[in-house]
Simulated scan of single mutants.
Amino acid sequence: MHTTLHTVTGPLSYEAVRGPVLSHEHLVLDLDRTGDGGAVLDPVRHGPAVVTEISALRDAFDLSLVIELTCRGMGRDPRALAAMAQETGVAIIAATGWYYEPFHPSEVASASVETLAASLVREIEDGCDATGIRPGVLGEVGSHGDVPSEPETRSLRAAARAALTTDLSVATHAQLGRGGLAQLELLTGEGLPAQRVAVGHQDLLDDPGIHKELASRGAYVAFDTVGKESYQSDDTRLRLLLALIAAGHADRALLSCDISRHGYLASEGGQGYGHLFHTFLPRLRAAGVDDDLIDLMTRRNPLRFLTGASTEEI
């Protein structure tokens, strides 16, 4: 394991993260392909509201770290993230990699796995977009469907190779929860240990068998769209998470809200980044999940994922 996290404001010891972690969020984002402006979190227009929410969660719940998974082709803005970290007092980790195929920039089209991996390694070592700000995770590296497409396969394999070279971990985007096992096969096939993989959006897949299989192989199972009721009810999320816990895999669960458009902000009537803390975690506690398990899923697990630590080490 490594003990230092690469945040947008510099290195941070994992031991300094004493409060909960949001393991999959977007603070700055542009996925608008239609011109309607919905799938956007603009740092100028929406940044103040984002800062207000994150600051409030720091004050109320001791929020200590946000893993920000906006990568190449998603409107990433490392300087804006650094400014938000300074303003909120909450550490932020930036990401690199490529989202799923419809959002791939042209650089992915015909590049080899070796070329793509080398590009990621350069960015991890030298910083994003000539800013000097180093990403601290690969993600959200995406695919859609039960089997990744050919470009998505190259992107995933490149992410695995870059992760091995730089000692980082990989968080995936599994569209609507599908294809997680295929993603894990590709990533581990490149030699990446399963404990360095978080398979995304599994709370959108109503299949506890797959969740248990991913966890039993050692991967982290991300319940990371909490509160997105238009995709999946929190009732279903709660049932699926309790099943994973009952199967003995609480040490593989990650929780977050994946705020990915400005309409989800609390200031615009959405559930906000705080939905996990204000609404979902109280429901978990009411279902019998104790504070130690809450800390496991919201702090220790994300830190283990980022550092490669075993359950005994953190």
Rank of each mutant, 00 (worst) to 15 (best):
G180A: 06
E213T: 15
L214D: 09
T96A: 09
R45V: 09
S106Y: 03
G248W: 13
G288R: 08
I314E: 11
Y231S: 05
D126H: 03
V51M: 10
A117I: 09
Q183H: 15
Q175L: 07
A111W: 14
R300S: 09
G73R: 13
L242A: 12
S112K: 08
L184A: 05
T311H: 06
V113F: 08
Y100F: 04
A198K: 11
E312C: 04
H104N: 09
L238C: 04
A194P: 14
L57H: 02
F61S: 12
D42M: 12
L238P: 02
E150L: 04
Y14D: 02
G179F: 09
E125I: 01
Y14H: 12
D129K: 13
D129H: 13
G200H: 10
E140Q: 10
L303G: 02
G200R: 06
E101I: 00
L186Q: 13
P135D: 11
A91P: 12
G288A: 02
T3D: 14
E15G: 03
G73F: 14
G274I: 11
S149K: 01
L192Y: 14
S169N: 05
L293M: 05
N301C: 04
G177L: 06
E68L: 08
D42L: 15
A309C: 04
H46R: 14
I124F: 08
V50C: 09
H173M: 08
A287V: 08
V50G: 07
I54S: 05
D291V: 09
R154S: 04
N301I: 03
L29A: 09
G218L: 00
G288E: 03
R237H: 01
E101S: 01
R134P: 03
S55Y: 01
E68F: 10
G73Q: 15
E268I: 07
D146M: 06
A309D: 08
T307M: 00
S169E: 02
D36R: 04
A182S: 10
P11S: 03
E68C: 09
T70Q: 06
H46E: 15
K212C: 11
D290E: 14
V113L: 01
L156V: 08
V147R: 02
G209Q: 02
D207G: 12
G288L: 05
V121I: 15
A130R: 15
Y231T: 05
G218I: 00
G269R: 13
I133K: 04
T236R: 14
L12H: 12
K212A: 15
G227P: 08
D258R: 07
S216T: 03
T131S: 12
E15R: 15
L65T: 02
T88Q: 14
A95Y: 13
M297H: 07
G47R: 13
H173E: 05
T9I: 00
G248R: 11
G136K: 15
P208L: 04
R76L: 14
V197L: 12
V8Y: 03
G47W: 12
G263V: 01
V66D: 00
P148S: 05
D30S: 13
G19K: 10
V8P: 00
E313D: 03
E15T: 09
V121R: 11
V108D: 03
P282Q: 14
L116N: 06
R154T: 03
A266M: 03
D291L: 13
E53K: 06
L187M: 08
A85R: 08
S112N: 10
F223I: 00
E268S: 11
L22G: 13
S64M: 05
T307I: 01
H278I: 05
L293S: 05
D36G: 03
I54H: 10
A162C: 09
G132Y: 07
I124M: 15
V137D: 13
